[in-house]
Amino acid sequence: MSEQGALQHLVESAGVDPEVFALRPDYRAVLIAVDGLVPGPSDDVSEALLQKAEAFAVQLLAAGPVEDVPHVAAWRDAYRAFGAKPQRTRNSLEALVRRAATGLPRVNRLTDMYNAISVLHQIPLGGEDLAGYVGAPRLIRANGTEPFDTATGGEATVEHPEPGEVVWCDDAGVTCRRWNWRQGRRTQLHDHTTSALFILDALAPLSDEALGQATADLYTHLERLGPDVQVARRLMETPREQP
Rank of each mutant, 00 (worst) to 15 (best):
residue 1 M to L: 12
residue 4 Q to C: 09
residue 4 Q to K: 15
residue 5 G to D: 14
residue 6 A to P: 03
residue 6 A to F: 08
residue 7 L to V: 03
residue 12 E to W: 07
residue 12 E to R: 13
residue 15 G to P: 01
residue 17 D to N: 02
residue 18 P to S: 05
residue 21 F to K: 03
residue 22 A to K: 08
residue 27 Y to C: 00
residue 31 L to Y: 12
residue 31 L to F: 14
residue 31 L to S: 09
residue 33 A to V: 11
residue 33 A to K: 11
residue 35 D to A: 15
residue 35 D to N: 13
residue 36 G to M: 10
residue 38 V to Y: 05
residue 41 P to V: 00
residue 42 S to F: 00
residue 42 S to A: 04
residue 46 S to C: 06
residue 46 S to N: 09
residue 51 Q to R: 15
residue 52 K to E: 15
residue 56 F to D: 12
residue 57 A to E: 08
residue 58 V to F: 06
residue 60 L to H: 06
residue 62 A to K: 14
residue 62 A to H: 12
residue 64 G to Y: 09
residue 64 G to W: 09
residue 65 P to F: 02
residue 65 P to L: 05
residue 65 P to T: 05
residue 67 E to C: 01
residue 69 V to F: 04
residue 76 R to Q: 15
residue 77 D to A: 15
residue 78 A to V: 11
residue 84 A to R: 11
residue 84 A to Q: 11
residue 89 T to F: 14
residue 90 R to H: 13
residue 91 N to F: 01
residue 93 L to I: 09
residue 96 L to S: 10
residue 99 R to W: 00
residue 101 A to D: 00
residue 102 T to S: 08
residue 102 T to D: 04
residue 104 L to S: 07
residue 107 V to F: 09
residue 108 N to T: 12
residue 112 D to E: 06
residue 114 Y to L: 06
residue 114 Y to A: 03
residue 116 A to T: 02
residue 128 E to W: 09
residue 129 D to Q: 07
residue 131 A to Q: 14
residue 134 V to L: 06
residue 135 G to A: 07
residue 135 G to Q: 10
residue 137 P to F: 14
residue 138 R to Y: 08
residue 138 R to T: 04
residue 139 L to S: 05
residue 141 R to E: 07
residue 144 G to A: 09
residue 147 P to S: 04
residue 148 F to K: 04
residue 148 F to D: 04
residue 148 F to C: 03
residue 149 D to L: 05
residue 150 T to H: 02
residue 153 G to D: 12
residue 158 V to M: 02
residue 158 V to R: 02
residue 159 E to W: 01
residue 161 P to Y: 01
residue 161 P to Q: 02
residue 165 E to G: 06
residue 166 V to C: 09
residue 167 V to H: 04
residue 167 V to R: 03
residue 170 D to L: 07
residue 172 A to I: 02
residue 172 A to C: 01
residue 174 V to C: 02
residue 174 V to R: 04
residue 175 T to K: 11
residue 175 T to P: 04
residue 180 N to R: 07
residue 181 W to G: 01
residue 185 R to E: 00
residue 189 L to S: 03
residue 191 D to T: 08
residue 192 H to G: 07
residue 195 S to G: 15
residue 196 A to M: 10
residue 197 L to N: 05
residue 197 L to R: 06
residue 203 L to Q: 03
residue 205 P to W: 05
residue 205 P to K: 09
residue 212 G to E: 10
residue 213 Q to S: 10
residue 215 T to P: 01
residue 216 A to F: 01
residue 218 L to D: 04
residue 219 Y to K: 10
residue 219 Y to E: 12
residue 220 T to H: 15
residue 221 H to Y: 13
residue 223 E to S: 12
residue 224 R to W: 12
residue 227 P to K: 08
residue 228 D to T: 13
residue 228 D to K: 09
residue 229 V to C: 02
residue 231 V to K: 03
residue 233 R to G: 00
residue 233 R to D: 00
residue 234 R to I: 06
residue 236 M to G: 00
residue 239 P to I: 11
residue 240 R to K: 14
residue 241 E to S: 12
